[in-house]
Amino acid sequence: MSDVGDEASENEDLRDNVGQRFGRLPATPDDREVTGRASREEVVDFFEERFGIEPAVFESFTFWEKGKGKIWIFADDMPSPIRIEGLGMTVLRTRQEHWKPTHSAVQRFGKHATKNVVDLSAEEAAQFARGNDQDVDWDGDWGYLIAAHQFAGEREPVGVGLYLYDELRSTVPKGNQEALSTL
């Protein structure tokens, strides 16, 4: 990890998106200096509008972009911009037609979701966790959903899935796929 601080070379414009540098998301779209960069307000609004996650859940976190549209969340603050390999965890992919929450974000914050959560049976959750697509009855929105299962009386997020044409597609990354017991 490199030293913390403003390490932008004199040749780099801080208003440019640089793939090897984290830049803090601006508070609002009106504060945007980097073309195409999401704002904190837009990210928080996305989670509230799509999943019903209250903005207060994200109050103590800062949001950062590294590369084009890879949004990270960090439970502290740092100077911006900063050149380091990682900062917190990836939370969202933007700069594409449909924003996609990450598997890690859904597992960390999905328990706060009040909408666009598909509740799976034990067998469906096990299939989903193994990375298998499956036909699922769902009468809600199409698109990215939080796949969840009741465990010990609590709704637990399994991961993020893509629901299209009566099929729930598992987007669980290969390195996170696992065999869950259905007992």
Rank of each mutant, 00 (worst) to 15 (best):
R155W: 10
S2N: 15
G52F: 14
D45E: 14
G67C: 07
R93P: 00
W64N: 06
D135C: 03
G36V: 01
G131D: 02
P55I: 08
S9L: 10
E54N: 15
K115F: 08
E156Y: 01
E33P: 00
F22G: 00
G153L: 13
G88L: 04
A147D: 08
D166F: 09
E42C: 09
G153H: 12
T28L: 12
G140D: 01
D3L: 12
R108S: 04
E97C: 06
S39R: 04
S39A: 14
W99V: 14
G110D: 09
M1P: 02
G131V: 07
D45F: 07
A125T: 09
S121R: 05
G143D: 00
A75P: 09
L145C: 04
H98P: 00
G5M: 14
A125D: 00
L25T: 07
N11K: 15
M89Y: 13
F128D: 03
E59L: 12
N116S: 12
L25Q: 03
K70E: 12
F47N: 01
V43M: 04
R50M: 08
K111F: 13
S2W: 14
R21V: 13
D31M: 07
F22A: 02
I146N: 03
G143E: 01
R32E: 03
V160C: 09
H149A: 08
D76W: 10
R130E: 15
S80I: 03
V57R: 14
T182Q: 05
A122G: 02
Q96H: 03
T28N: 09
R21T: 11
F58R: 07
T35G: 02
R24L: 14
P157E: 03
T94C: 01
L162D: 03
H98V: 10
E154N: 13
Q134Y: 00
H112V: 00
N116Q: 12
E10D: 15
E167D: 07
G140F: 03
K70A: 11
R93S: 02
I82E: 07
V34W: 07
G110E: 04
P29G: 10
R24M: 12
G88F: 00
F109M: 06
F61M: 08
A148H: 04
Y163P: 12
G175E: 15
T94H: 02
A126N: 04
W142H: 03
E124F: 02
